[in-house]
Simulated assay, not measured.
Amino acid sequence: MKHRGHEPFPLLFSDDDTDLDDVREALGAADAVEGLGSNVAATLSWAKSVTPPRSLAATWELLSSVAARDVAAARVLEPHLDALAILGEAAREGIDVDVDPGGSWGVFAAEGPGMRLEARREAGTWTLHGTKPWCSLAAHLDRALVTAWVDDERRQLFVLDLRDPAVTARTGPWHARGLAGVVSAPIDVDAAVAHPVGEPGWYLRRPGFAHGGVGVAACWWGGAMPLRDALREAAASERADQLSRTHLGRADTALWAARAVLRDTATAFGAGGSASEGLRAARARTVVADAVETTLAEAAHALGPLPLVADEAHARRVADLQIYLRQHHGERDVARIGADVATGAGAW
């Protein structure tokens, strides 16, 4: 992929020059990493060195620009920055978390059938017991923010040291062709000591929950932009016809609309105080997911099988995006939007 030195994408245009300088510095360091995205250890080492941007807009700028370089690299960076943002949010609310924020971080909040992670408190000490699914890179990370059940109805967030002998990271199953190195497998926890972050339910109630969800969408958007570039190159060739330009036009329009939604969402979140941030985030994620699905389809139809079998970077990008995009749950997420709107929530 061609990119312009260490410049970010013109996605959100942060007004804070210091933030943009931090983004450029992070991108410059990323461009110097050999095996960015494919070398997990080197990518994590770079991620730990990244200075988290202070504004949401600059954070999404960084994530989209990293995804344009390598989708897997963004998949590594995004939860690390999200964890640091959650810890910062807790500190601003006066929640005492006596944990060193150094090292590499993940966020493990998914649930799965037949698996349950429970928290128990004895003599003032919290311990975690059970199995947590979908723990990306657990075998490589230092710590994670993990949700666990404190009873049958409430979940609470905890800091878990993944290097604790009481934590076992499974190696699979993970047969994915996309994001092959970003293994997302269960962890088994046998009475590991954990530190609570907030009260039960705080993790889901906090404003940053919606913000983090759209940060993932910014990764999707940036990851799709090189496919638009490939379509543009095909449409500009001497052999181009109306069909190749139609494919480009569809992808370009979809990604342009998604960019506008991301910018609008960053502005709205920056203003704060909205009771419908969750719905806004769900709408934004859906718009971006649809745009990336459209781009993947247009690239497949316009470019045919050749780049999928002969261009390693293109083939890996497509496979990585197809897996990463499944963090959006398709029609189920759209149905939740419809349910909120049907009950009168989320006026435009």
Rank of each mutant, 00 (worst) to 15 (best):
V50P: 07
T18L: 13
P10S: 12
N39P: 08
S45P: 04
T43S: 14
A68I: 01
A29V: 07
V50T: 05
D17M: 08
D16Q: 08
P53G: 02
G37T: 02
V66H: 03
P53Q: 01
A57T: 09
D22Y: 08
F9P: 05
S64C: 07
D15P: 13
V23R: 04
S49K: 09
V40N: 11
L36A: 06
G37W: 05
P10F: 02
F13W: 14
H6S: 14
S64M: 05
T59F: 04
F9L: 15
S65H: 01
E61F: 01
T51P: 06
D31N: 08
V66P: 00
L27Y: 02
N39V: 10
P53I: 02
D15K: 13
A67E: 02
W46M: 05
L63T: 03
H6Q: 15
P8A: 05
W46A: 03
A42R: 10
L12M: 12
P10M: 00
L56E: 12
L44D: 10
S65K: 00
G35D: 10
A58W: 05
T51V: 14
L11A: 10
G35W: 06
L56V: 11
S64D: 04
P10K: 06
D21N: 14
H6D: 14
D16C: 09
A30F: 00
T59C: 09
D31C: 01
T59N: 07
V40D: 11
L27C: 01
S65Y: 00
A29N: 12
D21P: 06
E34L: 11
H6W: 14
E61D: 14
A57C: 10
S65D: 03
